[in-house]
Design a binder for these strands. Structure first.
Lengths: 250, 250
DNA sequence: AAGTGGTCTAGACCACTCA
DNA sequence: GAGTGGTCTAGACCACTTC
């Protein structure tokens, strides 16, 4: 990560961040107040405030009105792993992507599915199962349920032409959601489709995607052969979103 | 995520974010300029700037000097998964944590280990293998290598008393690092120790932790029984760190 | 009462892009 | 040259904490 020391904010940022990652200021330690930093760097208070605010948003600092600024206790780290469209992921590696449609139907929601989508049982749900290939080697089975009432036009989509991921991205960018990553032994059919070895486990990523209003839009189960796919990402401190009210986690 | 509309910044933020997550402003679309928002909300320019800056840091906007502000193209989402100390994780669930030391020795780095740590082969490395229990059920095997030259005092640590995670956190808070998540079939001994079923796969999380200067401090392999552990997290747009120079990814 | 951070103002200069 | 965002200033009032 390149640090811009070219600006006054950058200087203050580098000064504070340096003390933190260098271990000089331990977690919980008091950071100089805005007034003190103003005196030290000879800038206006707003400049200092900007720098500290940014570091707070990035999870390095904890600020309490009336009390002071402190080094945030990093008792947890956060894994930031990109979840992309399979097609994009393959393209990035320079591979060729192809997709076979295994199932594609509109069905009535079972009790479990209705509960998942918070819909009355029997409501219509679009179901699709796709097999994605990288250079003719199967890489992923995508098992997806979509609420067609919330995603207009999705019933007319040809999954082989445009991915559901891309389509949904266009319809509802910036969805909220949760994902769960598991190691599983998939059933026979899955093993066969993904050309997996007899003892090979699978990595399963299950995503529940919600509209900003909280309604479930789609549930996707992505299954990868364990020997051909890993999930990877960077580790960083937990980020604070500006929309959040000050941390209630203590 | 609660949005503070109590402040002027909050109002502007809510206005812009609403248009984005509501799909009214599509990815790539032009966002009103600071001048326009100043006119609309009747605030000073700094106030508008703050709000847009925050949304930029959170990955929702893309700003180009001299050009304008745009809705960031969300072609990828990011899974934000917490990586905590096992002991903390178990404590959060109200469980009881216990730890058995399987191996604990200082050895000379093999060629592969030396390469991983970017050290000359034969350098001393601390190796430990721990079995973590939740309520007397084994949950994790921690297989860890540490460069004792970079982490003073680590050789005197009793892993059963204080976890390496906590110790390292205290020594080098806010490390940089990468993690890889895999589904694997562990060897016999591991299956036995974790009391895994004959066909049960394992979830493996491998972390490489680096000091701010880039030197590898520790490599941890954490192995969980697939039926007793999942990795989960929230999905959000990729965050931009203020220290980064404007995105070069296009 | 003194000090803290949160927010806001009304200016300013700059580097940049586009026409 | 007009418009954009990036940065900065020197003030201000507020809510909050601790003493």
């Amino acid at each position: 990560m390149r640090e811009p020391t070219s600006s006054l904010q950058g200087e203050i940022r580098a000064f504070v961040l340096g003390k933190i990652v260098g271990g000089e200021w331990a977690p919980g330690a008091r950071v100089p107040s805005e007034t003190e930093l103003v005196a030290r760097f000879g800038t206006s208070r707003m400049t200092v405030h900007h720098a500290l605010k940014a570091l707070t948003a990035e999870g390095y600092l904890r600020r309490v009105k009336g009390l002071g600024t402190f080094v945030a206790p990093p008792r947890a780290h956060v894994l930031h792993a990109r979840l992309t469209d399979v097609a994009d992921e393959i393209a990035e590696r320079g591979g060729r992507h192809r997709c076979e449609v295994l199932d594609h139907d509109v069905r009535c929601a079972s009790a479990a599915e209705a509960a998942l989508f918070q819909l009355p049982p029997g409501e219509r749900l679009l179901h699709a199962r796709l097999l994605h290939f990288e250079n003719d080697t199967p890489l992923q089975i995508e098992d997806r349920l979509i609420d067609p009432a919330r995603v207009p036009g999705v019933e007319d989509l040809d999954p082989a032409a445009e991915s559901y991921f891309a389509f949904l991205m266009g319809k509802v960018p910036y969805p909220a959601g949760r994902a769960v990553v598991r190691a599983v032994m998939p059933p026979m059919e899955t093993r066969f489709l993904l050309r997996m070895g007899p003892e090979e486990p699978a990595l399963e990523v299950e995503r529940v995607t919600r509209a900003p209003d909280g309604a479930v839009l789609t549930v996707a189960r992505l299954i990868y052969p364990g020997t051909r796919y890993v999930l990877s990402g960077e580790i960083a401190p937990p980020v604070g979103r500006a929309g959040d009210i000050a941390g209630d986690d203590e």
